[in-house]
Simulated assay, not measured.
Amino acid sequence: MLKDIIEVKPLENYQLYLKFEDNKEGIIDISKIIEFIGIFTPLKDLNYFQTVKLNPEWGTIYWDNGADLDPDVLYSAITKQSLPQFSSYVYQ
Protein backbone atom coordinates (compact mmCIF):
# COMPACT_ATOMS: atom_id res chain seq x y z
CA MET A 1 0.00 0.00 0.00
CA LEU A 2 2.55 2.55 1.14
CA LYS A 3 0.24 5.57 1.21
CA ASP A 4 1.47 8.54 3.18
CA ILE A 5 -0.74 10.41 5.60
CA ILE A 6 -0.91 14.06 4.57
CA GLU A 7 -3.32 15.41 7.19
CA VAL A 8 -4.32 14.57 10.75
CA LYS A 9 -6.86 16.23 13.06
CA PRO A 10 -7.60 15.03 16.58
CA LEU A 11 -11.31 14.69 17.26
CA GLU A 12 -13.31 13.56 20.31
CA ASN A 13 -11.94 10.89 22.60
CA TYR A 14 -9.35 8.78 20.77
CA GLN A 15 -10.59 9.52 17.28
CA LEU A 16 -8.44 10.99 14.53
CA TYR A 17 -9.38 12.29 11.13
CA LEU A 18 -6.77 11.08 8.61
CA LYS A 19 -6.25 11.99 4.97
CA PHE A 20 -3.89 10.06 2.72
CA GLU A 21 -1.94 11.12 -0.36
CA ASP A 22 -4.48 9.41 -2.65
CA ASN A 23 -7.26 11.54 -1.06
CA LYS A 24 -8.74 8.59 0.86
CA GLU A 25 -9.88 9.92 4.21
CA GLY A 26 -11.78 8.89 7.27
CA ILE A 27 -12.02 8.76 11.02
CA ILE A 28 -10.35 6.08 13.09
CA ASP A 29 -10.68 5.34 16.79
CA ILE A 30 -7.10 4.67 17.86
CA SER A 31 -8.26 3.02 21.10
CA LYS A 32 -9.64 0.18 18.94
CA ILE A 33 -6.25 -0.64 17.42
CA ILE A 34 -3.72 -0.07 20.22
CA GLU A 35 -3.38 -0.87 23.89
CA PHE A 36 -2.29 1.99 26.11
CA ILE A 37 0.82 0.19 27.33
CA GLY A 38 4.53 0.70 26.76
CA ILE A 39 5.27 3.62 24.47
CA PHE A 40 1.52 4.17 24.03
CA THR A 41 0.83 4.66 27.77
CA PRO A 42 1.00 8.49 27.61
CA LEU A 43 -1.63 8.52 24.84
CA LYS A 44 -4.26 7.40 27.36
CA ASP A 45 -4.23 11.01 28.60
CA LEU A 46 -6.61 12.66 26.12
CA ASN A 47 -4.83 16.00 26.42
CA TYR A 48 -1.60 14.35 25.36
CA PHE A 49 -3.34 12.29 22.69
CA GLN A 50 -4.57 15.54 21.13
CA THR A 51 -0.94 16.63 20.55
CA VAL A 52 -0.63 14.19 17.61
CA LYS A 53 1.59 15.47 14.82
CA LEU A 54 2.21 14.67 11.18
CA ASN A 55 5.69 13.75 10.02
CA PRO A 56 5.67 14.24 6.24
CA GLU A 57 9.10 12.62 5.90
CA TRP A 58 7.82 9.37 7.43
CA GLY A 59 4.31 9.73 6.00
CA THR A 60 2.70 8.98 9.33
CA ILE A 61 1.56 10.43 12.63
CA TYR A 62 3.52 10.56 15.86
CA TRP A 63 3.68 11.96 19.36
CA ASP A 64 6.64 13.65 21.05
CA ASN A 65 7.32 10.64 23.28
CA GLY A 66 8.32 8.64 20.17
CA ALA A 67 5.04 6.76 19.63
CA ASP A 68 4.02 6.44 16.01
CA LEU A 69 1.70 4.23 13.99
CA ASP A 70 2.24 2.32 10.76
CA PRO A 71 0.51 4.27 7.98
CA ASP A 72 -0.30 1.01 6.15
CA VAL A 73 -2.28 -0.26 9.13
CA LEU A 74 -4.12 3.06 9.39
CA TYR A 75 -4.81 3.12 5.63
CA SER A 76 -6.11 -0.43 5.79
CA ALA A 77 -8.44 0.46 8.66
CA ILE A 78 -9.75 3.59 6.93
CA THR A 79 -10.30 1.91 3.56
CA LYS A 80 -11.35 -1.49 4.96
CA GLN A 81 -8.68 -3.20 2.86
CA SER A 82 -6.98 -6.10 4.58
CA LEU A 83 -3.24 -6.40 4.93
CA PRO A 84 -1.93 -9.93 4.29
CA GLN A 85 0.33 -9.80 7.37
CA PHE A 86 -2.64 -8.72 9.53
CA SER A 87 -5.29 -11.04 8.11
CA SER A 88 -6.55 -11.90 11.59
CA TYR A 89 -7.14 -8.22 12.46
CA VAL A 90 -10.83 -7.40 12.89
CA TYR A 91 -12.00 -3.94 11.85
CA GLN A 92 -14.68 -2.24 13.87
Score class of each variant (00 low, 15 high):
Thr60Ser: 15
Asp45Tyr: 07
Asn47Tyr: 11
Leu69Arg: 04
Tyr62Lys: 12
Gln81Leu: 03
Asp29Glu: 08
Ile37Pro: 09
Tyr62Trp: 13
Leu74Glu: 07
Ser88Pro: 08
Phe40Val: 00
Lys9Thr: 11
Ser31Glu: 10
Tyr89Gly: 03
Ser76Lys: 04
Tyr89Phe: 15
Gly59Thr: 01
Lys32Ala: 09
Asn47Glu: 10
Tyr48Gln: 03
Lys24Val: 08
Gln15Lys: 15
Phe40Ala: 01
Tyr62Ser: 13
Pro71Tyr: 14
Ser87His: 04
Ser87Asn: 10
Tyr91His: 13
Ile27Trp: 00
Ile39Asn: 11
Leu54Ile: 10
Tyr48Asn: 02
Glu57Phe: 04
Lys3Cys: 10
Leu18Ile: 01
Met1Pro: 13
Leu74Met: 06
Lys9Gly: 08
Tyr89Trp: 14
Lys24Thr: 07
Ser76Asp: 05
Ser31Gly: 06
Ser88Asp: 08
Asn47Thr: 09
Asp45Ser: 01
Leu16Phe: 00
Asp22Gly: 05
Ile78Val: 15
Ala67Cys: 04
Tyr17Leu: 02
Phe49Tyr: 05
Pro56Thr: 13
Lys9Phe: 02
Leu83Gly: 05
Trp63Leu: 12
Asp64His: 07
Tyr17Gly: 04
Trp63His: 08
Ile37Val: 09
Pro71Arg: 11
Leu69Val: 03
Asn13Thr: 07
Tyr75Ile: 05
Gly38Asp: 13
Gln15Arg: 12
Ile34Tyr: 07
Phe36Asn: 03
Tyr89Glu: 06
Leu16Met: 00
Asp70Ile: 02
Asp29Asn: 09
Ile27Ala: 00
Gln85Arg: 13
Gln50Leu: 10
Asn55Asp: 15
Leu83Tyr: 02
Ala77Pro: 02
Leu2Pro: 11
Asp22Asn: 15
Asn65Arg: 05
Ile39Met: 14
Ser76His: 10
Asp70Gly: 01
Ile78Thr: 12
Gln85Glu: 10
Phe49Val: 12
Asp68Thr: 15
Trp58Gln: 09
Ile28Gln: 14
Gln85Gly: 06
Lys19Val: 05
Leu18Trp: 00
Ser87Gly: 08
Thr79Glu: 06
Tyr75Val: 11
Val8Gly: 00
Leu2Asp: 12
Phe36Asp: 10
Leu2Ala: 15
